[in-house]
């Protein structure tokens, strides 16, 4: 009995020792010399491998970052949108550098052509793919710029941050969004934009990208931007530009004064997470019609934080 135990111990021990020696030499022979910082940087990264930084994965991003730090002594053009400032600071600390604070971004859906606002004129029947439908026809509502509602953006999201609202047929971004940009690339119509998250999550944007003239645009969708330039004229900060019958608000210049929202005749400009308007607001504010802007604001505040960007002109 003892013999068996002894024999087993000996053979297994010998086998283990021999293999360990072999492994040691093999490991030495095939050793890859790598900057240990790469591992450290990689550890600091979120490891989502989303590609939001523009590189194929976190490991690759770490390699590029370390290379840039070694060669150029800066981290210009390198940003992990998922980790945000916290992670980039950590990365910079590992590499002995400093980074500029970057404002966090969030994906914004610039279309409000919901089933109610842009009623379907035809029915689509086919593969559930926006890219395919975009090639096939203009859209159920007839707007050739608007959301097709088949969810390529939802499929592209690795963070569970974008979902379809079955009532409106439009996608909704929640606060899990890390601004990796996958949905921006996935949308065949370029509706989604990464915009400044804003103080207290407050944002103002034109929720339309229709470049047609007012008439045809309005024919297909009641909340289309008709290119009337009223917002452009009222903006005190020159944040609004007009091109191809379409207004665009530069989020870096916008001071969130909400004047443009008031003047927009089609409710194409959206404000999110602002407090409810009072009839007489702070100094300088004009008389505001109660119904239309407050509806937007009321719904927006009533929404839970996770539903903040839900486009809300549904009946």
């Amino acid at each position: 009995m003892n013999d068996i135990v002894l024999f087993a111990l000996l053979t297994m021990g010998l086998l283990g020792a021999t293999l360990a020696v072999i492994l040691y030499f093999v490991a030495q022979k095939f050793k890859v010399i790598e900057d240990p910082k790469i591992d450290l940087v990689e550890d600091a990264l979120p490891k989502a491998n989303c590609g939001g930084c523009g590189y194929p994965g976190c490991r690759n991003f770490a390699e590029v970052t370390v290379k840039s730090a070694n060669e150029k002594q800066n981290l210009e053009g390198l940003n992990c949108p998922v980790g945000g400032n916290a992670v980039m600071k950590q990365v910079a600390a590992i590499l002995g550098l400093e980074v500029e604070e970057k404002e966090p971004l969030i994906a914004v859906i610039r279309c409000n052509g919901s089933k109610a606002n842009s009623p379907a004129k035809v029915q689509f029947d086919g593969a559930s793919s926006c890219a395919f439908a975009h090639n096939l026809f203009a859209g159920e509502g007839g707007c050739q710029f608007g959301c097709l509602g088949l969810g390529d953006c939802v499929d592209s999201c690795d963070f569970d941050a974008i979902h379809m609202n079955p009532e409106t047929g439009l996608p909704v971004v929640n606060d899990k969004c890390v601004a990796c940009g996958a949905c921006v690339k996935a949308c065949p119509r370029g509706i989604i934009e990464l915009r400044n998250k804003g103080k207290k999550d407050r944002r103002i944007f034109v929720s339309c990208i229709n470049k047609e003239k007012g008439g045809p645009a309005k024919k297909n969708c009641s909340v289309a931007c008709i290119g009337c330039s009223k917002c452009f004229q009222v903006c005190p900060y020159e944040a609004i530009t007009m091109a191809n019958n379409l207004a665009y608000i530069d989020f870096e210049k916008c001071k969130l004064c909400r004047k443009c929202v008031e003047v927009c005749p089609t409710d194409a400009i959206h404000e999110l997470n602002f407090p409810l308007r009072k009839v007489k607001a702070e100094t300088g504010a004009q008389e505001i019609q109660e119904e239309k802007p407050s509806k937007v604001a009321a719904v927006a505040t009533a929404e839970s934080a996770s539903q903040e960007t839900k486009n809300d002109n549904i009946v």
Partner: peptide, 8 residues
Amino acid sequence: NMFTISGS
């Protein structure tokens, strides 16, 4: 009726 759009 509403027309249907689909690929061939």
